[in-house]
Design a protein around this nucleic acid. Structure first.
Lengths: 329, 329
DNA sequence: TAATATAATAACAACGTTGTTATTATGAGG
DNA sequence: CCTCATAATAACAACGTTGTTATTATATTA
């Protein structure tokens, strides 16, 4: 049988209600008694009963994360970051790999205080509801929840700007052009607009469709591109995984980064620094994304405003060692 | 405010204790009243309060899954299967991506009824304890918990046997030889023993170290192997991901499976059927693994025996279209 | 010194369930 | 028709907390 506040009360010679207050650091109990109770609790190895607490406070101090599609390095880093961010606020996170609707059911039963949804476009329906605040990331805009969005077009503008300032005029974008994923499309459109904006020439090798988001897709796309007669002086990889494939392909072709060719990768995650070549990258830093998701969620949680909000984050360019001034050869 | 059994009691004109019994389908309440109560509950959209239930029963009806390393297709299928298997028994599953020790802490707080650990060798220490039964899979044997193990050597013996019966004498094993992962090593050793047992010749290309478990590792290892003067008539890929890489490499070299070369993949998961070529595979079917993990866990849960047990599963060969009788050319 | 404000602690109801015990209605046997 | 077993339901304590209210001890003021 686990130790309860009543046991501590007996040990410390006070009433159990005083113990409760002491454990919650209430100002209503004398520092001296507080001390006494706290040491007793510690000594007896007291562990609070969450069910009891939840029963009276109606709070579980828990955030549920819905993540039906377990993939992509960028996301799993984010999961860890979210976990930390939530822990920081004295809450716990747990994860469901079920589809969005049944995950919400599960979370309802567990009386989570809030939820986060990671998902691809398709799955999320507009008719979903939840009795707690929900923030989504990476999901489409077709749902009734709050949203943390990213300014992808701005990201591409910055990347192209950075490269053209280094003298690059021949730049390739390697990414997935599939029309279902609106985020990928925005990167693509952003790149087009940026090339236009800086009046840079567009070649056949400027737009390379990797037709997928895996490492290998980027690898193959790059190999294919390198077979052509002309090649760019710089590449923008549309995601971490794709960029990893690009790097691998370039190195296999004995091209030296950044001497022979420059590269910027989308996704601002720590792993970018631990690739074969530390990659200069553009994107919203993953810690910031995590922080913003959790902030928005807790704002809604505190104000009990279920009004869905959208917040768009601005990308940041992180310089590493994969871009150089264009070779004047 | 949510609806409670007291609300239902009032609506149905009975006492709330009777409602409780009716909802738990107790024989102590008349079928007629039971009916009445149940319809009232349904109509009012009653949702039981888990915290209250847990407070008195001391059960959360929840299994925690610890999965600090989010990777590999084989594992994510297994997560889904486990989820189903656990649901079948009226329990819920939730997932923690924290390290094993802090996950166990979290689970303790949530009063889970049991836990499952997925992990690589290294992390799991022998000094861990938990106040609930724990079953591990894919983790080393260096911990105090129950274990679902796989007879990897037997798997390799069956695979080689199957191939030699089809007339293959030149067989390659492509896998990770790194000494830290004992499971990979057992596959390797099992293959060696099997080749010996059937007195098959061993060539330089018989053992190919992919030095990693990713798709690309298998792809590269295969490409490397194909550059040699001689090549095998059959390949065994040591995991799903590696085998996927092997297939890709073979097709890029215009080798037709199974006409030119046969292949068996380790890991008996449904995805094997949806590769570019449906792969004949060896391994314990993932549904069986899930079923066994959950069975063992619930056995311990019911008998309250915390005695750690090990149960070893036998592999099964699933025929698809990637193996043919050896070309008599 | 008595009355009164204040600080500290104790007592207790409440949260929504379950399971045990008490009460009431129903039917059988004499 | 009365007693007694039995079936059905009601009443109530318990689970381990929190938060509100009641009580006690202590200090302040007139």
């Amino acid at each position: 049988m686990a130790i309860t506040i009543k046991d501590i009360a007996k040990a410390a010679g006070v009433s159990y209600s005083t113990v409760s207050k002491a454990l919650n650091d209430s100002p209503l109990v004398q520092p001296k008694t507080k001390e006494k109770i706290l040491t007793a609790a510690r000594q007896m190895g007291y562990e609070p009963n969450f069910a009891a607490k939840q029963l009276v406070t109606k709070q579980s101090k828990t955030i549920g994360l819905i993540w039906p599609t377990l993939e992509r390095a960028a996301h799993s880093t984010l999961v860890t970051q979210l976990n930390n961010e939530i822990k920081k606020r004295g809450f716990s996170m747990f994860l469901s790999v079920n589809p969005v609707d049944s995950s919400l059911e599960l979370f309802k039963r567990f009386h989570v205080d809030g939820a986060i949804i990671f998902d691809e476009e398709s799955v999320v329906s507009t008719r979903l509801t939840a009795p707690f605040p929900v923030v989504s990331y990476g999901a489409g805009r077709q749902h009734p929840f709050s949203l943390i969005d990213v300014n992808y077009q701005q990201a591409m503008l910055q990347a192209v700007d950075y490269l053209q300032q280094l003298g690059h005029r021949s730049i390739s974008f390697i990414g997935d052009f599939s029309p279902i994923d609106s985020r990928q499309q925005e990167k693509y459109m952003g790149f087009q607009k940026a090339m236009n904006h800086f009046q840079l020439p567009v070649h056949p090798h400027s737009f390379i469709n990797s037709a997928g988001l895996e490492w290998f897709d980027g690898y193959q796309a790059t190999k294919r591109m390198l077979r052509a007669a002309t090649r760019p002086t710089a590449i923008i990889g549309a995601s971490y995984d794709i960029s990893a494939g690009v790097v691998r392909a370039l190195r296999e072709t004995n091209l030296i980064i950044p001497k022979d060719i420059s590269i910027i990768g989308y996704d601002n995650i720590p792993q970018m620094a631990t690739l074969e070549v530390p990659l200069t990258s553009i994107g919203v830093p993953v810690e910031l994304i995590a922080e913003q998701i959790v902030s928005l969620l807790f704002e809604q949680l505190d104000h009990k405003s279920s009004e869905p909000l959208t917040r768009t984050l601005e990308p940041v360019l992180t310089e590493r060692n994969s871009c150089a001034r264009v070779n004047p050869a």
